[in-house]
Design a protein around this nucleic acid. Structure first.
Lengths: 251, 251
DNA sequence: AGAATAGTGTCTATTAGACATTATCGT
DNA sequence: ACGATAATGTCTAATAGACACTATTCT
C-alpha cells in the first residue's frame, strides 16, 4: 500500500524547499559517540580509557569517543570505528550499539547527546597508538574503572555496556569475539567466566558452545604440559548464536 | 579510586572556558526522536502513524516523533513522551528505547540522527487528539504499515521496534503492558499471540505467566456465556519478568 | 444432554547442573 | 606410576510442548 504522493523525494516544490533550508539555523544538541572498548588481559575484563586533554572534565578519564564528523563519518558506527581505529589500530571489531543518552545535565555546556557502543577485541591484536599530542590512552581493569569518577556520565554508560555484555554472555556466543586465532575450549570458558564474573560448569559450557556452531576444530592441538587440548577457531561464517535458555552460572 | 584532578567541575579555568563556549558555532546533525506506538485492536497489532504536513516526505506517513526541544525536554525520553501525550493523551506508557540511527542519507537535508522508541498502550485508554492543524493521525495495522513507504527510514525503525517487541514477548512479560484493567488469561494469551504472530500452548502460557508474578487475580469473574473466566489485573509493583527460557511458539 | 469456553493432569522432550570418571600427556 | 589438565558419562532437576481430560456455564 504505497501512498500516492510518496515516491516524490524530488518534486520541484521539494527541491525549492531544500535549496532554502539552512541546516545550521536551529539550535541543536551536540552529538557524540562513546565506546566501551573491552578486552581480556591477565584474566580480567579491561576497558580502554582516555585522559581528557580539554575542558570540561579536564584530566578525567573517559570512554573512547568524540563528536560526529559530518564530513568523514557516513553513519554513527563510522564515528565509533574511526575513534577505535585511531586508538587501537583495529578496524573491524565486534561493535554493538547499547544506549543513547541525551539531556541538559550531562555536559556543563548544555544539552548533549551521546550514543554508546561496546567493542570486543582480542588482546593479542591490540597495539595502542598514542593519540594526537601523546594523549594518555590506557587499559584499566573494569573493576577499577567502575570505581573511578569518569568524565560526563561515562560511569553510567560503562555500566550499561558492561551489563549488556555480561547478560548476553549468559545466552549467546558473543564472548567468542574476544578470542583470536586458535584457542582451547578451556580458554574460551575462562573468557566467559571473566565476562560473567562467576565460574561456569565445564560440561554444560562445552555442550552449548559445540552445539552452537560458533567455533570449529582447527585440527591442531595445544601441548601445554599435561594432556593436550583440542584447538578451535571462530567459524567466521557463523552469526552470534542465541541459546533458548540462559546459563545460571555458579555461585 | 578517584583521580586527583577529577572532582573539579568548577575550577576558575573551567569556568572561563565555559563562558567563552558558544554551543552553536559547530555544525551538528539535527536530532529527532521517533516512536512506534503499538496497541492491539481487532486482534491485530496496530501502530500509530502521522501524515507529514511538511517537506521532506510531504504527505507520507511517519512514526510519531519530532525534534528535541532543548527548552522543554529534560532528556530524550521526555521528547518521546511529549509527542506521545500530544497525539494520544497518554502520559505514562511503557516506553523502551530501541535503536539510534544517524547518517548522511536518511534525510535529504543532510546528516541527521533519530533515536527510536516503542510504546505499548492498552487500546481502551486511547483517545486520539487531532494534532495541530488537524493533522492526520491514525492507527494502521502493522502488517499494512510494513508494506507502506514511510517517511525517512521509518520502515527500518518500525521493523527494529517490531522485532524487539516480538522477541521480548517470547521471554518476558512485556505484553502485559498492552492490557488495561481486568482481563482474562485467554485475553492476555491472545495479546501474546498477536505480538508473536503465532499461537502458543495454553498450558505452558498459563504456567509461565502465573509463576512470573506479573499479574494477580482481581477477585472477579468474567461471565461471557459459557464457563466464567477468572479476571486478573497487572501487579503494578512487579517489574517486567525475564524467563530463563524462550517460548518456542507453535507453527 | 450438548455445545462452548475455561482450566488442569500428566506424559514426553530438551537441556542445564552436578560431579564422578576416564583420557592423555610429561616426568 | 603419579600428577595435572582435558574431556566425557551419566544422573538429576527444571520447565516447555502436546494433548487428552475435567469443570462450569447456557440453552
Amino acid at each position: 500500500m504505497i501512498d500516492e504522493t510518496s515516491s516524490s523525494a524530488s518534486t520541484e516544490e521539494e527541491s525549492a524547499f531544500l535549496a532554502e533550508y539552512d541546516a545550521s539555523q536551529y539550535d541543536r544538541p551536540s552529538t557524540a559517540v562513546d565506546t566501551a572498548i573491552f578486552t581480556i588481559k591477565d584474566d580480567q575484563l579491561h576497558v580502554l580509557l582516555i585522559q581528557r586533554e580539554e575542558h570540561p572534565f579536564l584530566k578525567q578519564w573517559s570512554l573512547v569517543g568524540g563528536y560526529i564528523n559530518m564530513e568523514v563519518d557516513t553513519d554513527l558506527a563510522a564515528t565509533a570505528k574511526r575513534k577505535l581505529l585511531e586508538k587501537t589500530g583495529i578496524a573491524t571489531p565486534y561493535l554493538e550499539q547499547v544506549i543513547t543518552v541525551g539531556d541538559k545535565q550531562r555536559d556543563p555546556r548544555g544539552w548533549t547527546i551521546s550514543t554508546s557502543y561496546f567493542a570486543l577485541l582480542p588482546w593479542e591484536k591490540i597495539q595502542l597508538r598514542a593519540g594526537s599530542g601523546a594523549q594518555d590512552v590506557t587499559w584499566h581493569p573494569h573493576s577499577e574503572a567502575a570505581e573511578m569518577s569518569l568524565a560526563f556520565d561515562h560511569n553510567h554508560l560503562l555500566t550499561q555496556c558492561r551489563d549488556r555484555l555480561r547478560s548476553k554472555a549468559l545466552y549467546t556466543t558473543l564472548p567468542v569475539n574476544l578470542m583470536e586465532g586458535e584457542f582451547t575450549l578451556n580458554e574460551l570458558q575462562q573468557a566467559y567466566e571473566v565476562v560473567i564474573g562467576k565460574p561456569v560448569q565445564a560440561k554444560s559450557f562445552r555442550r552449548r558452545i559445540l552445539s552452537s556452531g560458533a567455533i570449529k576444530e582447527s585440527g591442531n592441538m595445544r601441548a601445554t604440559g599435561k594432556r593436550p587440548a583440542q584447538l578451535y577457531v571462530k567459524d567466521e561464517t557463523a552469526d552470534t548464536y542465541y541459546f533458548a535458555r540462559t546459563m545460571e552460572s555458579l555461585a
